[in-house]
Simulated scan of single mutants.
Amino acid sequence: MKPALPIEVDPASGVWSTDGLPMIYLPRHFFVNNHVEIEKALGRAAYAQSLYAGGYRSAHFWCAQEAATHGLSGLAVAEHYLQRLSQRGWGRFSFIAADVHSGAAQIALTHSVFVLAQGIAGVPVRSDKLCYLFAGWFAGAMDWVGEDLGERWRTFSRETQCEAEGHAHCVFTVSALGAR
């Protein structure tokens, strides 16, 4: 099977892009091993906090760009986001539930890059929540949806179960924080 998303390569610079956004293609073990080492160096709490903030901003930006590129709006943008993440090798993401009036949502993840990479090329095997890197992405996407629909709430997202803990899939729970 070939990639389901369009990939353009600039012949002069070698920069890869999809839908006009620059991309980086790198081996999974490289990314995951660096993730593990940064977590060790900073401590899990500090690293998770920085990933959350950066992931939130990136998801929010991506939703705005993709909405304009594809003429999408509302929850369709977040659904497209989950589809594109799935097509990029992070795992398979899908909504379990989503409420556009409050921002609350649950997202399932199967075949997570962090779970599948365990024991390969030096990546340690663990049985705790490994996929927290994604949490900020879902709050950023749901907050964008709310803004697009004229809602005034903000959300917070966290990994509530992980496949590495023995579950059939990971679950991320997005909860409303209230009006801004």
Rank of each mutant, 00 (worst) to 15 (best):
K2M: 08
P3D: 04
A4L: 15
A4G: 14
V9T: 11
S13I: 06
G14W: 10
W16P: 00
T18W: 05
G20W: 07
Y25R: 13
Y25T: 07
R28T: 11
R28V: 15
F30R: 10
H35Q: 12
E37D: 14
I38R: 13
I38V: 15
E39G: 10
K40S: 07
A41W: 05
L42H: 08
G43T: 07
G43C: 13
R44E: 14
A45M: 05
A45Q: 05
Q49M: 11
L51F: 04
G54M: 09
G54A: 09
Y56Q: 00
H60A: 06
H60M: 06
F61R: 08
W62R: 03
W62V: 02
A67D: 04
H70I: 11
H70W: 12
G71C: 13
L72M: 11
S73V: 09
G74C: 03
L75A: 13
V77S: 01
E79H: 13
E79G: 05
E79K: 06
Q83L: 15
Q83H: 13
Q83P: 05
S86E: 05
R88K: 15
R88E: 07
G89Y: 01
G89I: 02
W90M: 06
G91H: 01
R92I: 14
S94M: 04
S94H: 06
F95D: 03
A97K: 15
A97D: 14
S102G: 11
A104H: 13
T110N: 09
L116K: 08
G119R: 05
V125D: 01
S127D: 13
C131R: 00
Y132Q: 13
F134Q: 07
F134H: 03
G136L: 01
W137F: 12
W137Y: 06
F138C: 03
A141C: 14
D143I: 11
W144R: 00
V145R: 00
G146A: 11
E147I: 02
G150K: 02
E151D: 09
E151C: 13
W153E: 03
R158E: 08
C162V: 01
A164V: 06
A164T: 08
G166H: 02
H169D: 00
H169M: 11
T173F: 05
V174I: 13
V174H: 00
A176G: 14
L177S: 07
L177F: 00
A179F: 03
